[in-house]
């Protein structure tokens, strides 16, 4: 109201710019549907209120059994998965699941903004009006009381609070000892091996344009990006959203447009409810995978900048650290301040 005209015009320009960007992203996603082929379509089973999960995977047959079981147990009712050219039986495994629909594509992962274009198209088409959980196969979503209260309780609560989105901090979990010392078998709990995490070496910056935060730190920043912390991976995500076909993920699931959805924090110092994503990246499979990724050059940003990172992983390091914490459930994360308690109303 009291804003000078110049400022008003500036604000309007920013909003228009963001709107254009969002529309461009949605258009890309819409176009990318041509790259997807239906492999298994069970979407007719989706009920009006079902909670859906979306993922883009590549050679994840080892992780998928536990991944699906964990999120099914939380209350995900249907999985919509893009298979990016797997050759390890991922597609057949998914096709055999009663609650999965699968699309396959051989197109470039990088050219589709690391799968986000494909997933956004599925979200647009199937997710509208549903609570949607967008994940990678190496992420396990948790929230306070997730062991006793189903995801539906969380989404009902979010609706009662008028909150359309729910954030989560990604926690890099790692084993003690060299990464390949313990072999993970499909179906096992990956966090029986990856029992450790960094409790607090996280940095938070604000990105004013998208009004989102930028959290970095954890084991990867500590070990692989100590000389270039700015390049360390972003750890804040917004995996759970009551989707609207006008929404678009900007950068992986780190930020959303319209930018109001990124408001994961309270400016008055009040903790807003959030969850966590336990990251099972550092299973023994990481070493071969890093070799492949390094050759594939489909990573974020400039691939060459990540050569050192992949070399670091290929060398089978020990990420464990004397200050590491052993994971003991969501209560511990609340006590450590990594996840605020939910004031269930």
């Amino acid at each position: 109201m009291g804003m000078p005209l110049q400022q008003k015009v500036g604000a309007l320009r920013v909003r228009l710019r963001l709107r254009l960007k969002r529309q461009r992203l949605l258009w890309r996603s819409f176009r990318s549907r041509h790259r997807l082929c239906v492999a298994t379509d069970r979407t007719a089973q989706i009920g009006r209120d079902d909670i859906l999960a979306f993922a883009c995977v590549r050679n994840e047959v080892v992780r998928l059994p536990w991944f699906l079981a964990h999120h099914r147990a939380l209350g995900v009712q249907h999985f919509l998965i893009v298979d990016n050219d797997s050759d390890d039986g991922t597609r057949d495994y998914l096709a055999a699941q009663p609650d999965c629909s699968v699309w396959r594509t051989e197109a470039s992962y990088k050219a589709s903004r690391f799968g986000i274009d494909w997933v956004t198209w599925l979200l647009m088409h199937y997710g509208h009006g549903h609570w949607c959980l967008t994940l990678d196969a190496d992420e396990a979503f948790i929230y306070p009381e997730h062991d006793t209260r189903p995801l539906r309780a969380l989404t009902d609560w979010l609706e009662a609070q008028n909150r359309p989105a729910f954030g989560a901090l990604m926690l890099d979990m790692y084993p003690r000892g060299p990464l390949d010392a313990q072999t993970y078998a499909p179906g096992d709990d990956p966090f029986a091996i990856l029992r450790w995490f960094d409790a607090d070496n996280y940095t938070v910056l604000m990105k004013p344009l998208l009004r989102c935060l930028w959290v970095q730190g954890g084991a990867r920043a500590r070990v692989f990006f100590a000389d270039e912390p700015r390049r360390a991976p972003t750890l804040n995500k917004i995996p759970l959203v009551r989707w609207n076909r006008r929404y678009a993920y900007v950068n992986s699931t780190h930020s959303l447009m319209p930018r109001e959805l990124n408001q994961m924090h309270d400016a008055n110092g009040q903790p807003l409810a959030a969850g966590a994503l336990l990251h099972s990246k550092f299973l023994h499979t990481i070493i071969d995978k890093s070799r492949e990724e390094k050759a594939r050059r489909e990573h974020f940003g400039e691939p060459a900048a990540f050569d050192a990172y992949y070399d670091g992983l290929i060398s089978n390091p020990d990420l464990w650290h004397e200050g590491a914490r052993e994971y003991a459930g969501w209560r511990q994360l609340v006590a450590l301040g990594l996840m605020p308690a939910i004031d269930w109303g």
């Binding site: 996280y202 938070v204 935060l213 110092g269 903790p271 807003l272 301040g337 605020p340 308690a341 004031d343």
Partner: peptide, 27 residues
């Protein structure tokens, strides 16, 4: 206890879900 936790927050903690604006930190 839950209400108390909610209203007092946790001074000095900076995280994704609690990133107060400068000088409104409540600690």
């Amino acid at each position: 206890k839950a209400v108390e936790r909610r209203t007092t927050g946790r001074p000095g903690l900076y995280m994704q879900s609690r990133f107060p604006h400068r000088d409104r930190e409540n600690g």
